[in-house]
Nucleic acid binder design. Structure first.
Length: 641
RNA sequence: GCCCAUAUAGCUCAGGGGUAGAGCACUUCCUUGGUAAGGAAGAGGUCAUCGGUUCAAUUCCGAUUAUGGGCUCCA
């Protein structure tokens, strides 16, 4: 006779085995209605699951994260049911839950149109209204294969064949639709309703580009209408922060057809870029890096020697001249080794840290390009640390601190950490891999960082840590990285003389903090919605006159500010002050000085911010020192008043 | 590279088989106005490129290129 322990510690005993739904009903009719599933001894199961032994049970409703997950998963099934009804020739494949929603991949001889999506959505709503019970059953492997083969569901049959022998196969049936699924699901389709189909996209079967292209329908689903609305609103707001939109609005950069994936930086965009470069240059110097510069175009033989021609060949832009073949460099590492190789190196020079703002070109697949986040021509804040094996751990640790300090100056606190470990195709001994993977993992652990392992995702020459940031709609972009490389120094004959006078091959650490200027600026723009912090803002102060009478004063004020190193400019147009303020605000200029007779007479300035707040009034000296403090503190000491 | 969509004025977009439309921006004039849009006039487009269908194509069809959303790949 089962005794059920609930999360609050209370217990309920039953004469006979009971389902989770029964327990919920026993507690109250409201809960019974809201029950989506149960967590039995920490395992999520269907509400229909019968408990015949003592257990701890948490009832899952749409208020729980697990409940929302179930809603999304069941909505994916609901969509598959609707699609099968509307388009009987479709084959279903898989339909998992993703962030904010779900997708389902279908095989169909024609493509789904936006009209199809509308029809599917409508049918889904109808099916939800019917409140079909979603019923679980178990099936033997052979029966399952036959079941789906009879339905001409070849993809499903293939999935079943790949499921391990010892695993129980379960089916979920709702109305006329049955799907192979591990579950659990909500009790009936009536629990579903707050969803929207978002888009159709192509997706390879099993994520392999050699396989057939399926059609993936993405949807979003929520526990309530309010949540759905809030999500759609959030998306809309996020789109306003899109770096491509802001880049155009603020006249920062453009791209054009003749140079796909390569950025034309405009004056204001280039100012931001320059500020970042100068900042990084200074920081790297402080961290003991030597800045170097290496060629854009290098003979193919070097790329063959380094292994890039083999592994990276298709991505390189090739150049021919006088019967020689060159490649425009896709990365800087081999060039840095050439610098290392000049002269005889001593162990006393290690770790040798070389840095370069290295312009790289990669012939990325046309479909991979994305604004300035993913381009073909970009500049890395690249650096290579040549060191001994015993120095790896400390160099990694120091680097992570350095990276954090830089990210903090830019206002980034949410960093995603991932460790990519040995791929199937690799060079170097297992011993080296063990050592370097451990060095990276230890460096992360020592700082108490929450990191995820990506097994098999490492570079062919070594494991790497990726430091990623999110864009405005939550897409994750790798920015910083540190990679241990036991291979390239040897391939390119790098050696140093150790304390015993013997030649040794150094280890090479590849590292970047920003990743690429292009991507990092893209993320920065989205993160700040174009409102760059004062130290990065291309236009820091806008001085505007009320009437022509104040022109000369404004010009003098502009010179005073620019002489102090501030990026200030006048707006002396014959326009009303309201318009000038509007344009400066839309232009995300941090501070505005409105100059009329009053200000000239009193020498006191009220400062208007781009967020429409007022600072001051203050005199010129206070203003100047306040602005400088904000700039040198990188926003930590904002202008007061 | 693959799947889908899109490409009209500097920008944001509407339109539609029969010599192209709006708002903003731009130019000129009037206005000298105190914290998010003052008024008037003017100028501006081989409707992405190349083919096809048609008496006629910017509009329909196809290809190409680029862009957007995915997939694959990647900083």
């Amino acid at each position: 006779m089962p005794t059920i322990t609930l999360p609050d510690g209370s217990q309920r005993s039953f004469e006979q085995p009971v389902s989770i739904a029964d327990v919920a009903a026993d507690i109250g009719p409201g809960l019974a209605k809201a029950t989506l599933a149960g967590k039995v001894n920490d395992t999520l199961v269907d509400a229909s699951t019968v408990l015949d032994n003592d257990a701890t049970l948490a009832i899952v409703t749409s208020r729980d994260d697990e409940g929302l997950h179930l809603i999304r998963h069941s909505t994916a099934h609901l969509m598959a049911q609707a699609v099968k009804q509307l388009y009987p020739g479709v084959q279903v494949t898989i339909g998992p839950v993703i962030e904010d929603g779900f997708y389902y991949d279908f095989a169909f001889e024609r493509t789904f149109t936006p009209d199809d999506l509308t029809a599917i959505e409508k049918r889904m709503a109808e099916l939800a209204k019917e409140a079909f019970p979603i019923v679980r059953s178990e099936i033997a492997r052979n029966d399952a294969v036959k079941f789906f083969t009879d339905l001409s569901e070849e993809y499903k049959a293939e999935i079943i064949r790949d499921i391990p022998e010892d695993e129980v196969l379960s089916l979920y049936e709702q109305g006329d639709f049955t799907d192979l699924c591990r579950g659990p699901h909500v009790p009936h389709t009536g629990h579903l309703g707050h969803f929207k189909l978002m888009k159709v996209a192509g997706a390879y079967w099993r994520g392999d580009s050699d396989n057939a292209m399926l059609q993936r329908i993405y949807g979003t689903a929520w526990a309530s209408k309010k949540d759905l609305k809030a999500y759609l609103h959030r998306l809309e707001e996020a789109e306003k922060r899109d770096h491509r939109k802001i880049g155009k609005q603020l006249d920062l950069f453009h791209l054009q057809e003749e140079a796909p994936g390569m950025v034309f930086w405009h004056a204001d965009g280039w100012t931001i870029y320059q500020q970042i470069e100068q900042y990084m240059r200074q920081r790297q110097k402080e961290e003991g890096y030597k800045e170097i510069r290496t060629p854009q175009i290098v003979d193919m033989s070097l790329w063959e020697k380094s292994g890039h021609a083999d592994k990276f060949g298709d991505d390189m832009f090739a150049v021919k001249s006088e019967d020689r073949s060159y490649a425009i460099k896709p990365m800087n590492c081999p060039c840095h080794v050439q610098v290392f190789n000049q002269g005889l190196r001593s162990y006393r020079e290690l770790p040798l840290r070389l840095a370069e703002f290295g312009s790289c070109h990669r012939n990325e697949l046309s479909g991979a390009l994305h604004g300035i986040m993913r381009v073909r021509g970009f500049v890395q804040d690249d650096g290579h640390i040549f060191c001994g094996e015993d120095q790896i751990q400390e160099e990694c640790s120091t680097f992570i601190d350095f990276l954090h300090s830089v990210y903090e100056d830019f206002g980034f606190t949410e960093v995603i950490y991932r460790l990519s470990t040995r791929p199937a195709n690799r060079v170097g001994s297992d011993e080296s891999w063990d050592k370097s993977e451990k060095a990276l993992a230890d460096a992360l652990d020592a700082k108490g960082l929450d990191w995820k392992e990506l097994p098999g995702e490492g570079a062919f020459y070594g494991p790497k840590v990726e430091f990623s940031l999110k864009d405005c709609i939550g897409r994750v972009w790798q920015c910083g990285t540190i990679q241990v490389d036991f291979s390239m120094p040897g391939r390119l004959d790098a050696t140093y003389v150790d304390a015993k006078g013997e030649r040794q091959t150094p280890v090479m650490l590849h590292r970047a903090i920003l990743g690429s200027f292009e991507r990092f600026i893209g993320i920065l723009l989205e993160d700040h919605e174009g409102k760059m912090p004062l130290w990065l803002a291309p236009n820091q102060v806008r001085i505007m006159n009320i009437t022509d009478k104040q022109q000369d004063f404004c010009k003098k004020l502009e010179k005073t500010l620019t002489d102090q190193g501030l990026r200030a400019q006048c707006d002396l147009r014959n326009e009303k002050i309201g318009l000038k303020i509007r344009e400066a605000t839309l232009g995300r200029v941090p501070y505005m000085l409105v100059i009329g007779d009053k200000e000239i007479e009193s020498g006191q300035f009220s400062v208007r911010t781009r967020d429409a707040s007022e600072k001051g009034p203050m005199d010129l000296d206070t203003l100047l020192s306040g602005l400088k403090a904000e700039i040198t503190s990188r926003g930590r000491n904002p202008l007061e008043g």
